[in-house]
Design a protein around this nucleic acid. Structure first.
Length: 157
DNA sequence: GCCAACGTTGGC
DNA sequence: GCCAACGTTGGC
């Protein structure tokens, strides 16, 4: 059954590998290569077409939120798991029992400026200490953001 | 480039 | 089922 309300998400990408500019260029991109069960479950079980995504640049000089994207497809099996030549190949995955799922992600817009992680941390009181992005040791690359957190983060733009 | 944090794997 | 070893993430 479909939910009526939209959820919000944050997805990390290393800009050297795939940046918000790359997404703008291609328009829509299958979000392949996620090999973490929790992140997979969010994509497979939580996302709906039209949900908004904060596009986060990780592992770069100024990590932070760089743009907005939307969920552009239902979840479907990540093709790279079946490809022996792919670095994302998973020998234990079969077409009958795929292990990894993804959604297509569509470009919406770049932020006027990147909102740096350093700055986001200064708003921990408003975002909540449990906010996954600023929780110590968090490495999850896909996770939900509440509507309030989403609005607050964009108010920093 | 370093390394803390954390998830996964596999031997037992 | 425990847990050491290993690999990866990602800030700094």
């Amino acid at each position: 059954m479909k939910r009526k309300t939209r959820r919000h998400w944050l997805m990390k990408s290393e800009p050297d590998a795939f940046s918000i500019d790359d997404l703008e260029r291609v328009g829509t991109e299958p979000w392949d290569g996620v090999r973490n069960y929790q992140a997979r479950n969010f994509m497979r079980d939580g996302m709906q077409v039209g949900d908004r995504i904060l596009f986060y640049h990780s592992n770069t000089k100024v990590p932070g939120i760089a743009g907005i994207a939307t969920v552009a497809s239902e979840a479907y099996p990540d093709e790279t798991q079946f490809n022996a030549k792919s670095k994302y190949h998973d020998p234990k995955a079969t077409r009958e029992a795929p292990r990894w799922y993804l959604v297509d992600v569509a470009f919406e817009r770049k932020l006027k400026r990147v909102i740096p992680l350093e700055e986001i941390k200064q708003h921990a009181d408003q975002l909540g200490e449990e906010f996954a992005l600023i929780r110590k040791g968090n490495r999850l690359s896909v996770f939900p953001v509440s509507a309030a957190q989403y609005d607050y983060l964009l108010s920093l733009e």
